[in-house]
């Protein structure tokens, strides 16, 4: 793809379509005339006709989304509130506690606590994202080597308490919802041809 069209900064010579705007009333008399004209012309009934026709046809043809009961699907690259995924097979947390998200976070809103657990593994004991500070840049999801932290589709940040969003358990896939957990296709995910890019190590055995 050529970058020519982006490099052309000569604004005004492109093919723009100019719209002729109607003139607005100036004197009080002109304004009054406009109000009277609009009130008694048929414009009101044009709108009402549409409403009554739809009402008569019934809900099957309605296009209204009943937010917040209904929501439109959101694009996979949309960066809303983070989710922490689990391993599909074992149900263990994917996060290995490497701390890269904490390091890369430019808003400095991620903090985690890790420890040496009984199984001699690194365990993440606390994980918090301060959504009051988060700028939803997506770096954490991009840097995560385990695809453990991703951006989910939940974009409503309204709550009585900010703390409602920053606790690990709220972001983590619940055990019963594990079978519904989908592989994340968005930011930071492996590309479709990732397998082809892997270099193999020779094995002598």
């Amino acid at each position: 793809m050529s970058l020519e069209q982006f490099k052309d900064r000569n604004v005004g010579t492109q093919e723009y379509r100019h719209i002729q705007a109607s003139t607005s009333p100036k004197t009080p008399m002109e304004k009054f005339t406009q109000v009277v004209k609009r009130t008694f012309s048929k414009e009101l009934f044009v709108g009402l006709k549409v409403v009554f026709t739809q009402m008569a046809k019934g809900p099957k043809t309605w296009h209204t989304v009943k937010y917040p009961q209904e929501k439109l699907p959101i694009g996979p690259r949309y960066r809303a509130i983070h989710k922490l995924l689990k391993l599909l097979e074992s149900g263990n947390e994917r996060c290995i506690g490497c701390g890269l998200c904490e390091k890369i976070c430019i808003a400095d809103c991620i903090r985690m606590d890790t420890r040496y657990d009984e199984n001699q593994r690194k365990e993440v004991t606390e994980y918090s994202i301060n959504l009051g500070r988060c700028i939803f840049c997506g770096y954490c999801a991009e840097v995560c080597p385990e695809l453990a932290i991703v951006h989910g589709p939940r974009f409503e940040n309204a709550s009585e308490q900010r703390a409602h969003f920053v606790i690990k358990d709220d972001m983590l896939t619940p055990v019963d919802a594990l079978k519904h957990q989908k592989e994340f296709p968005g930011f930071g995910a492996l590309s479709d041809d990732a397998d082809k890019k892997v270099k193999k190590t020779p094995l002598a055995y």
Binding site: K103, R115, Y116
Partner: peptide, 12 residues
């Protein structure tokens, strides 16, 4: 050492 293992990262 046991008391440092997996506690934090060097760069922090």
């Amino acid at each position: 050492s046991e008391n440092f293992k997996y506690e934090t990262n060097a760069w922090e």
